[in-house]
């Protein structure tokens, strides 16, 4: 499974290093919609941290989505 993170990271670095020529470049004056509150990731950090604390005490998976939980003896 190590190939998956490696591929992800390399893809990310590639996209960044090439200046995202492969992707559409949205200029600042075109970002009215992207700047709207409903488009932002991580809208409720406090709620996210509480929920992930709950998830980590009830589920075996962790990480990747949302805030870090932890602070308990959860596996």
């Amino acid at each position: 499974m190590r190939i998956i993170p490696t591929t992800l990271v390399l893809a990310g670095v590639l996209v960044g290093a090439t200046g995202c020529d492969l992707l559409t470049r949205v200029m600042p004056y075109e970002r009215e919609i992207l700047a709207q509150p409903q488009m932002q990731f991580g809208q409720s950090p406090q709620r996210g941290a509480f929920e992930n604390h709950t998830f980590e005490s009830r589920e075996g998976a962790a990480g990747g989505i949302g805030e870090e939980g932890g602070g308990c003896g959860c596996n």
């Binding site: 993170p5 992800l8 990271v9 893809a11 990310g12 996209v15 960044g16 995202c20 992707l23 559409t24 470049r25 949205v26 075109e30 970002r31 919609i33 992207l34 488009m39 990731f41 962790a62 990480g63 990747g64 989505i65 870090e68 932890g70 003896g73």
Partner: peptide, 28 residues
């Protein structure tokens, strides 16, 4: 004692003027 170390790499990319995407890798 218990050690618990977490490392995260994420890449957020504007796709177009109405879409944004994010890739995340977390290793613990």
């Amino acid at each position: 004692a218990r050690n618990n170390d977490s490392y995260t790499v994420d890449l957020t990319q504007v796709i177009d003027d109405e879409t944004i995407a994010q890739l995340v890798w977390n290793h613990r």
